[in-house]
Nucleic acid binder design. Structure first.
Lengths: 197, 197
DNA sequence: TTTATTGTTCTCCTTTTGTTCTCTGATTTA
DNA sequence: TAAATCAGAGAACAAAAGGAGAACAATAAA
């Protein structure tokens, strides 16, 4: 999106209005609305936007933006990958994932991809997506994305006591981990989870 | 629904009004209402909508939309609850659940709510939703909804051999269950899973 | 039976749409 | 200054969509 020309950005913005109304204009219709006189000129821009993944085409079906370009309100950004004991690994291309409203929290949410089997006791497997509500504090018993010593990320149930934060694994066979409160920073609370087979 | 012509969308919208009133208009009646003069022209559109699965025809019974066309295409029906060792319990009111396209199969899909902790080894917990693609056969290794002796439902990985069907639990500590093929009926294949916290 | 209605198929036509091409000018970059 | 990039005009063409009208078989109604 950042490496678009001014004209291309303008076209994307204009197409958003059409998308909001549920329309998919034709080349010549767009030409008229943008003040162009040649469909050939516009076609070059549309082709550029298509290879950039912002526009979807189907022959005879007009021009429509992809979910990625729309910032489709049904989607959330896939921010990165989380593996226990490591920092959250950011993802470059910023894919967006469809998340049903049933799995969304009230506030600002994003999606993390889980790496490794360390959360298996929580029923969260390698490759799963977790939907995280961005928060800096949690209620006891919630499943949180926690950052320990600003270095290790983990997905655990939290118990906050005066003078200590305890992170529980789901499996009672594993002992809970006890930290000083200032070492643990809550990044968000897991409000949903999805898996593809 | 997204790759329809403008005309086709208009026709679907118009048919929704008829559906609400319980009518199923004939071709010529629709022609008049849409301002067309030839039933042949309209027939082309209706045929396109039929192959798209939005329109049902029965000879002499007029034109009516399918259930798929009347529902929100982003949702799937919540058919019932599944608990290991019991028949699938149907749900009366037929709620529909938003299911992201990433979690959907190609064919006909529905959602089941999982009851109990019997699938916990698969990372499927009590209360989870599984997205199931309706199929009557599966490939080895797939996670299937299987009906045993037409009575017990279960969610297991399937292995089909000549003369035997083996259902594996994820936990190797539990022995796989071996059945005669005719006792096991595949109802569908799990293609996705969702959880709310 | 006759009559009307309905669904279907066919050919012909017009309009719309997407695409490619060349040419021109402006702006930026090396 | 020369080259590259962006933007646009205009012409031309192929494909697709949309529609008209005629014709015909099957069915339902009179």
């Amino acid at each position: 999106m950042s490496s678009l020309t001014a004209r291309q950005k303008q076209i994307v913005e204009h197409l958003k209005e059409h998308a909001a109304a549920g329309h998919a204009p034709s080349l010549r219709q767009l030409c008229a609305e943008l003040g162009l006189r040649s469909p050939g000129s516009l076609h070059k821009h549309i082709r550029a936007l298509t290879v950039a993944g912002l526009v979807e085409r189907a022959p005879g079906r007009g021009i429509r933006l992809t979910a990625a370009a729309l910032h489709d309100p049904d989607t959330l950004p896939l921010l990165g990958r989380i593996a226990a004991g490591r920092p959250i690994e950011a993802i470059g291309d910023q894919r967006r994932i469809h998340v049903p409203p049933e799995l969304r929290g009230k506030g600002d949410c994003y999606v993390l991809e889980v790496r490794g089997d360390s959360m298996i006791e929580e029923g969260i497997l390698d490759g799963d997506w977790v939907v995280v509500e961005h928060r800096d504090h949690a209620r006891n018993g919630e499943l949180v994305v926690a950052l320990i010593d600003d270095a290790e990320a983990t997905l655990k149930r939290i118990e906050q006591r005066p003078g200590a934060v305890i992170l529980h694994a789901a499996n009672p066979a594993y002992p809970p981990l006890r930290y000083e409160p200032r070492r643990v920073r809550v990044q968000g609370v897991v409000v949903g989870q999805m898996r593809r087979y």
